[in-house]
Design a protein around this nucleic acid. Sequence first.
RNA 1: GGCGCCGUAGCCAAGCGGUAAGGCAGAGGCCUGCAAAGCCUUUAUUCCCCGGUUCGAAUCCGGGCGGCGCCUCCA
Length: 477
Amino acid sequence: MSLKLYDTLSRSLKRFEPANPPTVSLYACGPTIYDHAHIGNYRSFLVYDLLHRYLVWSGYNVRFVMNLTDVDDKTILKAAEAGETIKEYTGPFGKQILEDAEELGILPAEAYPLATDYIEEMISWTQRLIENGMAYSTADGSVYFSIGSFPEYGRLKGLDLETATTVSRVDSDEYEKEDVRDFVLWKTTKSIDEKVEASWDSPWGRGRPGWHLECSVMSIKELGETLDIHMGGEDLVFPHHENEIAQSEAVTGKPFVRHWVHVKHLVVEGSKMSKSLGNTITVRQLLEEGFEPAAIRHQLLSAQYRKELNFTRKDLVASASAVQRIVDFETRLSSFGELPVDGEGELSAISLKTISEFQSVMDDDLNSAEALAVLFVFINKANGELDSGSDIFQGDVDRALETLKSMDLVFGLLSIAKETRQIDSSMEVWVERLLDERNEARQNRDFQRADQIRDELLSKGIALEDSEGGTRWKKSG
RNA sequence: GGCGCCGUAGCCAAGCGGUAAGGCAGAGGCCUGCAAAGCCUUUAUUCCCCGGUUCGAAUCCGGGCGGCGCCUCCA
């Protein structure tokens, strides 16, 4: 088996083949950092992370880059409202978005290029496009890409440009374009741009880059002329990615991307998330409401990335329970004392089978929903085996633990759940003291006092589990 | 109008031609001082509806009905 990914351009499941294995170049369209990122953004980021992690898990040497857009119409407007330059305005948002990503266990990218750090390159790309006859400047100092000069235009989205000239796209503002479908590479400066320092010198006068150009320039500068994988939200297929292909291939003459991967949009509490409906949710909000990062992560992974996912708080509660089950299983495996070393039981066989199943469902276009099912089947079978009374050997437990941790390298659930379950040492002392008192009460068969202590601990989020080996405690929701 | 997706138990969600995974929730049992955790049993004879193809369909085809996305800034 090997990884198959759905490729938007060919509209089919395509075997993943990087140009220069074992290296993989992975580029993802990141957010525009004019506001907090919402949970929908994070579904995309999490899918980027899932692919990133799975490629690493599969043995590839992944070079992952995600851009941050810090100059565009909305950013300029917001910065002006705040009376700041775009740099001042966007900086904190960019920082916060990455902090929240870290909280969700998203592995860092190799680089997070900012659009405004690549102005010179964008200018030189624009010049090259004009030289190639693919672009033209207008009297007002803007530059447009000429779609008519790129016959492939529209292929990614599956548009037939001859017949599908959509009426709605005729924009009266942009009368200077030779063709209404042409898109802007360089925009001439308006006074507001200067105010927020979103304006640069260019051969066509003061101006700023068009949004589409940055990804072409940054991805190629960071990763080379042909990317193995380019990811983004489904909304970016057209026109953003379509435009990227046109610009990039017009300049390099090489195929821009080998695999286009697009993430389906998230639905929140049953309806599309939008600012106008006022139903956007940020990760920060959810954390403040008391949901743990691992539960958020679990829910976002519970549907395959090309399926619609309805994100709800109710399901977040269910996800938290599911995460707890994983954590409890790991605790159980880690709590074995001395075990015989000279043997191997059924548990090892179960573990081995699990890994190969995990691999095969993940290879099938990152079917995280089914991969999670593989995890839970494993937990179920392993628990059953541990309860069966048959001999357990050290190697079995080691292998099971290894299997769990290996899958978690991709899921990233256990690792972040453990972080949120950490407890400070003064609290720990307090818990241990009460636990001693309770054990003494239990020995004296003073169950009323024992249960009272258990309830008190539970009200502070500490759950107890009595077993033959003693009482175990854990932090719980 | 154009392009595309989806409709599977109370909820979430796999399966995509061979007789319904998994999670959450519920019920009964084992274990326990009681719990918790874990295990066992149980919860869709059936996959929106109607036709068709097939030995066989949730899975393929046609037609309905219902929900949604993109085509415009948007992950």
